[in-house]
Design a protein around this nucleic acid. Structure first.
Lengths: 349, 349
DNA sequence: TTGAAAGCGTTACCAT
DNA sequence: ATGGTAACGCTTTCAA
């Protein structure tokens, strides 16, 4: 059933039917009711291709998911972010176009999306410290929002980010307050912007106590379970192991816990572990969060806010860049205890 | 730059240019070269809306991601499956349309996708034992492939599935061979088809030894970390705890490990744990797999194969239903040891 | 308040 | 081998 057929059924012109369906004010209310009812009854929906062509916009948002060929990894943060954003799109009648590409094809993909007018805007994931994509979007004149920031590029674009620097400054500060001085960090890939900000936060906290970050104690890699496991193992095998560890995501933290467990050790009793938790839904665990969580923020909420920002930008392209900086929630958990030496002291006293 | 402009630049008709670009044989080879080069130079791509309208197909595959309102969960299997499938789509020039909806809106979403011709076919995730969506797809005349199966509906549709029954029959058989008789099962939601097949496999293995499944030892829920944790805790608090546990996914298994650890117990030494591992990329851990994995299959591969099957179905709609049954790989890990009593016996010699 | 007709950018049929 | 033109299904402008 198409518009023409529907209008013939009703004895009206396609024009009127179109207007009724799209909520134009100048159509008679009784006519509109008739049209709406007939559309429902005949199961009519406007053809998406025709609508795109006529309107010159496609009601679609693009997300590009680069899958590194080397590791074949999909970031689990992605799923929750998409869930948050996608819900918002659906509410506004927008579709979500997801393109899975190899890392090295990502730029070509954005060019292609822009050229063929496949999307009205895009959401950028996982910005690097110096991310070329931001310049590219401007060149392509494609509305966009970045989930995160890119330090080198400046602030002249839309972004939604967590205050990573501050979160890790506080987290490290807490460990320092508890008496730890040898603090390790299981971080993300070094060229990721969030990882660089988190490291900066830690560095600042230590510096304010006159302590320098020890390079051997800082790890950078993609945040898999196995990465957390092997990092923690290496720490434990050091002549002078750290007494506390910061971890950038819950997934390597799970690996770190396994390494501790294999060594007959436990979090909190032997090594204080402080985790950044993106609140991934399958790992959220209500009552038990205090046992191991410290810095927390919701990826899904970030997805929701990013989507909102993008839709507004599309509706009003001349608006100046918007920024949202979310503060992570710091929860002091059981697993974040005093340094072992202090703990012994406390027990005695 | 559109087709008309491009053709004027070249002094050709839009028809010829279109033919050259789409690889029609009847165009002069020199003309084609000129056209291709000019298109490249002017950065031309056909407008997606116009193409859809003219061709009557949209070069798009739909995936629907239902997000349960209650738990706000996104299944992490989804991301890896999409990565496998999406890559294949991209290779063939297909787009992937992802719709995030509340559980209860899922059916309406498929109807909508079909009505407005937004997709050429869909991929169905997470089939229930009796899944209405399969009938719906037939009614809507929408080509589709199911990742998994739906027992009640029959086999009269395209599917790609793991042999869940057999995998868990073997897994339970292995535990029985090791001397376990009280075996628990941390399974997925009871109405999911995969969960029902896995339970059937376990039941058969026990039955062949004259043992009945004990209802108290079988849990059904969405497979979060916390679910694994609380289930294992409950098992441990029983007057007569199980000596072995089957777990349907690595995520609750992580929770189960935490519960054991909290109780001062460990996998293998105290409770044999046998896990179904979907090989989620962020949890894949090369050398360490034998420590805890037993039944294994790759979701990403399933995604790839499902995509392939769907594209073939779209190209050739009259083809009869295709089925792919993947066998899970059974790896006997360190964590899958003999029953505690047996182990003590073995130690004595 | 309604309708006729042009236009959106392609592809495909029918000529030449 | 190439071109003219209709057709795809909708929105929008202009008239009535």
């Amino acid at each position: 059933m198409n518009l023409k057929e529907l209008s013939q059924h009703l004895g009206l012109s396609p024009t009127t039917v179109s207007r009724a369906l799209n909520g134009y004010p100048e159509v008679n209310e009784r006519t509109r009711q008739r049209v709406l009812e007939a559309a429902e009854r005949h199961n009519y929906s406007p053809n998406s291709g025709a609508k795109r062509l006529a309107e010159g916009r496609v009601m679609t948002i693009g997300h590009v998911l680069p899958v590194s060929n080397e590791h074949e990894m999909v970031n689990p943060v992605f799923a929750d972010f998409i869930a948050g954003a996608g819900k918002r799109y659906a509410e506004e009648g927008y579709d979500l176009l997801l393109t899975v590409v190899r890392d090295e094809d990502e730029v070509a993909t954005y060019r292609d999306l822009a050229k063929r007018r496949a999307v009205d805007g895009v959401l950028l994931h996982g910005p690097k410290v110096n991310d070329r994509r931001i310049e590219l979007m401007k060149e392509l004149n494609l509305p966009f929002v970045v989930h995160g920031r890119s330090s080198v590029v400046g602030e002249d674009y839309n972004w939604v980010d967590v205050n990573n620097r501050r979160a890790f400054e506080r987290a490290a500060g807490l460990l320092l307050d508890l008496g730890h001085t040898r603090i390790a960090f299981i971080n993300g890939l070094a060229d990721m912007d969030f990882a660089s900000r988190r490291l900066a936060g830690m560095r600042d906290a230590l510096a304010s106590r006159g302590i320098e970050v020890c390079d051997d104690l800082v790890r950078h890699a993609e945040m898999s379970e196995n990465y957390g496991y092997s990092s923690m193992r290496e720490f434990l095998e050091m002549p002078e192991p750290p007494t506390a560890v910061l971890v950038s995501s819950i997934i390597p933290a799970i690996g770190a816990r396994r390494a501790l467990s294999d060594a007959g050790l436990s979090m909190a009793d032997d090594v204080s572990v402080l985790i950044h938790d993106d609140d991934l839904s399958y790992f959220r665990n209500e009552g038990d969060i205090p046992t191991y969580t410290a810095v927390r923020s919701s990826v899904r909420d970030a997805g929701h806010m990013s989507a909102e920002m993008l839709l507004q930008t599309i509706a009003n392209p001349d608006k100046e860049p918007q920024h949202v900086l979310l503060e992570a929630e710091l929860t002091i958990g059981q697993s974040t205890g005093p340094a072992p030496a202090m703990r012994r002291f406390l027990k005695q006293g």
